[in-house]
Design a binder for these strands. Structure first.
Lengths: 239, 239
DNA sequence: GTTTTGGATATTGAATTCATAATTCACTTT
DNA sequence: AAAGTGAATTATGAATTCAATATCCAAAAC
């Protein structure tokens, strides 16, 4: 039997928890779900690529049972496509999917802006401003990856400030599908500049707790983002 | 071994398909997923109730493997709660969950109204009007179940007219959680009357293809619905 | 009488096994 | 040589088996 458990998943994670707390036990299924999701979203697994169960089992050092459970969930979330008797492939985002997702995310994004303005604390605004400055620095240095990363963090904070877990998970679900194609995005300079400007406006609206304004800005900012993803998508077709 | 396959799932469904078409083959997992979802949403399985795998296996006449796959997906959708080593129970909707879901559904509902106005055909409007009349008849006869059913159909048609699958599934996901508590709702007469009035307005807005108006009506109609569910929820606590 | 502890029982998590459908590839036929 | 056919191989769908955890119940300690 060729089951090298070298890269196998570790369960307990002991060592850093505050002495006596409900010991965090996770099932393999849950752990796999998280890892696979991240691999897809980070582009380690390419859209359209077939994912044979055997390979993944070998990679994670687990049996097929928990792996398949995870795949079913990912399929339900639209991250992989499951064809009966023919296995799984990483779902690829079509232009149609993108155009469908856009208005839905717009509605959620707008809502998150309004609710964030109603609930955000001064400390959170300060934190966002701090991140914003870091982001601008990355922009000026033309560090795209770092820029994306900080940008991502800012949006997460706004979402968190909306204090609505349902909204957060609905948004994350859609966002995951988009980011799948995102890692290969290469923003044009003009679009990038505009994105940074929009972020400036976001900060102002947040400080003023102007929900309607923030909602509007987020919505148009999102349109910008979608254009970028769309271009990435089209350029990939031309491969 | 006590495996009575009397209620077992049937696979092929032959007989009614148009001669030679891609034969519809479904996996047990998928079939189970659909059935369990329906059982939860229809209230055949009560919120908070434990669902031992063994029982469900016996009921459907399948092994644990596909059943557990389905449960994992349902857990991901928030319809069941899975505790490691302790099994599954039907998720129960707290007041907090409800209050979180409300603004999110409101945003999606508004969007569906706007998009439906942009895309709906005259035929679809006519169909909705037909259903509306049937619904009013049920209202006058005080047939709550039938009323709910037709009401449901009308909202589905509006959603379908929005021509956005992403929106549809996002909405359905949230709606499922709500309907879970819905089957025990017992509308007050005044609220019921108001709901019917709102439906009248919906029809007008649809005929005029007035997206903004429809969005607004749907949103306030939703608030009405939420009040009803909330009351049902609170009355259950008093059991 | 109440609480605690130990073990029997049952249930779940995950691996393995078995069955079936899809894919591959050599071979036949033209 | 190209296309089609069919057996061998491989991958998936589902059942079964094994192991670990939780639950239940009785006996012991206080």
């Amino acid at each position: 039997m060729t089951n090298d458990a070298t890269s196998s998943l570790t369960r307990p994670q002991t060592g850093n928890a505050p002495a006596s707390e409900p010991i965090p036990r996770r099932t393999l299924h849950d752990e796999l779900l998280q890892r696979l999701r991240q691999m897809i979203v980070n582009g380690e697994l390419n859209p359209g690529q077939k994912v044979p169960e055997k390979d993944l089992c070998a990679r994670f050092g687990v049996s097929r049972t928990p792996l398949r459970e995870a795949l079913k969930v990912l399929a339900n979330d639209g991250l992989v496509t499951l064809t009966p008797n023919r296995g799984a492939m990483v779902a690829d985002l079509t232009l149609g999917d993108l155009e469908e997702a856009f208005p839905v995310m717009g509605a959620l994004e707008a809502l998150s802006g309004e609710m964030a303005c109603a609930n955000i604390t001064d400390e959170e605004v300060a934190e966002i401003k701090r991140l914003h400055k870091a982001m601008v620095a990355h922009y000026e240095a033309r560090e795209l990856q770092s820029y994306f990363h900080v940008n991502q963090e800012i949006h997460q904070l706004i979402l968190a400030a909306a204090r609505n877990q349902t909204l957060t998970s609905a948004y994350r679900g859609l966002e995951g599908r988009i980011r799948e194609a995102r890692y290969l995005a290469n923003m044009s300079t003009s679009r990038w500049t505009r994105a940074v400007e929009e972020h400036e406006q976001m900060i102002s609206a947040l400080e003023a707790r102007d929900g309607a304004a923030l909602a509007a800005i987020l919505k148009s900012h999102l349109a910008n983002k979608f254009e970028t993803v769309k271009e990435a998508l089209l350029s990939r077709v031309a491969d």
